[in-house]
Simulated assay, not measured.
Amino acid sequence: MRVLTPRSNCLLVAAVIVHDKATNRVVLLQRSENAKFAQGMWDLPVGKSEPGEPITETAVRELYEETGLTVKPESLKVAHVIHGARGVEAPNGFLTVVFATHEWTGEPENREPRKHSQVCWVDTKAIPEAFVDTTASALHRYLTGGRPVSLDGWH
């Protein structure tokens, strides 16, 4: 069996949809004016994988670092995959694995105020329009049962 790994120059990213099915809300964050990209835009909790780190651990770590919410890796289900041809800090492309979870502990808080202006629950019927395109598409497709893979920047 051959093991496939992302090219070393392709950025590997994890995003997490924390979905409270009882209230039909998701945890979102708004990027601050100091963010590296998409200043002022809404987004999912998302971040880059560290060398040697499994993607599920990236998701758990980034979610906690950004929101204070704790999830177990086994509670994460793959909701969507985004393959981008290029992006900020990823001139050779990126692969984002978007996970969904319905199990967490804690209440969302803004743990990175330099990067985010707010972290909060948002009703799925009131998702802000000023949203990072790739993760907005992934969230919409997750909520509507759409295709689980999207391409960004490919011809």
Rank of each mutant, 00 (worst) to 15 (best):
A79R: 07
S150F: 02
E74W: 10
T5L: 14
L11T: 13
V97M: 02
L44E: 01
E107K: 03
V132D: 01
T23Y: 01
R111K: 15
A35K: 02
G47W: 06
L28H: 01
T105H: 04
S75I: 06
L63V: 15
A85K: 10
F131S: 01
K21E: 14
G40H: 00
E66W: 07
F37Q: 08
T56M: 08
E57Y: 14
L12V: 14
T124N: 12
A22K: 08
A136T: 06
V132T: 06
T96V: 09
T67Y: 09
F94G: 02
I82N: 06
T67M: 05
A15G: 15
P51M: 02
K72V: 05
V122L: 03
N9W: 03
M41E: 15
E109H: 02
H102Q: 12
T134W: 06
K115F: 05
V71I: 15
A90N: 01
F99Y: 11
M1S: 15
V78M: 04
K21S: 13
D43R: 06
A38Q: 09
K115D: 13
R61A: 09
L12M: 13
P54D: 15
L11A: 11
Q118L: 00
V3N: 11
H155P: 11
V88I: 13
H102N: 13
W104M: 08
A136V: 00
R31L: 09
L63R: 14
L29K: 09
W42G: 04
V60R: 15
F99N: 03
A59S: 12
A22T: 11
T144M: 06
V119I: 06
A38G: 01
D20I: 08
T58S: 15
D152W: 04
W154Y: 13
F94N: 03
L69G: 02
A59Y: 12
W104A: 08
V60N: 08
L63P: 12
F37H: 05
T23E: 12
G68L: 05
I55M: 13
G153P: 10
E112L: 11
K72Y: 09
D152H: 07
Q30W: 03
T144I: 03
V60L: 09
T101A: 10
A14H: 10
Y64I: 01
P6G: 05
K115Q: 13
I127F: 03
K77L: 13
A38Y: 15
Q118S: 10
Y142M: 09
L12C: 14
G40P: 02
A100G: 04
V132L: 07
K125I: 09
R31G: 00
E53F: 10
H83E: 12
V27I: 10
F131H: 05
G93I: 00
S8A: 05
P108E: 06
S8P: 10
G106N: 02
D20Q: 11
L95E: 08
Y64S: 04
S8E: 09
D123M: 02
M41D: 14
E62F: 14
E74H: 14
L95T: 07
V16G: 06
V46W: 08
V132C: 02
S137A: 12
K125R: 11
G106P: 04
R114W: 12
R2G: 07
P45F: 06
V88S: 12
N9P: 09
